[in-house]
Design a protein around this nucleic acid. Structure first.
Length: 216
DNA sequence: CACCAGGCAAGTA
DNA sequence: TACTTGCATGGT
């Protein structure tokens, strides 16, 4: 079986077993951008608590957050962990959004995806995964997001070496799947759900995983 | 108690 | 370039 067929089969098996993921859980593109930073190396539950703290204070707009002092932002997002680092990163992102598009995210997304990706990567605190999460989940560009779960799962299934780089791992999917943002959206979500439930870092518990039959 | 979570940048050699 | 370290809360 070739990679393209196998990757599509994985998607279908996971979809049938787990059902729709409804990603990204956010009410606006801007919320996706915030969540993308807040969830860096952090479980979504903690990131979500931080988002809700901002929501309670009606701070979930770029203008309101931009006006908020960084120290106050840091206090509010404390539950997300790395809160000082993340406050600085969110501030850097806000400055970028203001200078690049006057906080108009719709306008920001008018440019070619490669151009926007390059610009996002210049923002301190926005790496490849965060940039791609924003491109796919906030703006619906057909960009496949990969993460540590993706690497672990695909390595365990012998698709890639353990130390596979971000770009190489991403190309495994983009070179073998149709460039469909809805497909990429759901596929990444399903892989994260598999990772969380059955493909943990230590004590690999494949039992019960929908993809167990495919593990070599 | 230890380990982990939807990373990233800065420092070192 | 290749490797190491700091960042930090909350759940299991």
């Amino acid at each position: 079986m070739n990679r393209a067929s196998l990757l599509m089969e994985y998607f279908q098996v996971l979809g049938r077993a787990l059902g729709p993921s409804h990603w990204w859980p956010a009410k606006s593109s801007f919320e996706v951008c915030l969540g993308a930073v807040l969830t860096q190396n952090t479980n979504w539950s903690n990131a979500s608590t931080a988002i809700e703290a901002l929501r309670e204070r009606e701070l979930l707009s770029p203008e309101r957050l931009d006006a908020l002092p960084e120290a106050e932002l840091a206090t509010l997002i404390r539950p997300a962990g790395y809160f000082r680092v993340k406050a600085a990163r969110i501030k850097a992102l806000l400055t970028f959004l203001r200078l690049e598009a006057e906080f108009d995210l719709t306008r920001l997304a008018q440019q070619p995806v490669e151009e926007l990706r390059s610009k996002l990567l210049t923002v301190k605190g926005i790496g490849q995964e965060t940039a791609d999460s924003i491109l796919l989940y906030a703006f619906k560009f057909p960009v496949f997001v990969v993460d540590t779960y993706t690497a672990r799962i695909m390595h365990r299934h012998a698709f890639v070496p353990e130390d596979v780089g971000y770009t190489e791992l991403q190309e495994l999917f983009t070179a073998n799947l149709p460039r469909d943002p809805d497909l990429f959206n759901e596929y990444h979500a399903l892989l994260v759900r598999v990772g969380k439930n059955w493909c943990k870092k230590s004590s690999p518990l494949c039992s019960g995983c929908p993809l167990q039959a495919y593990v070599p």
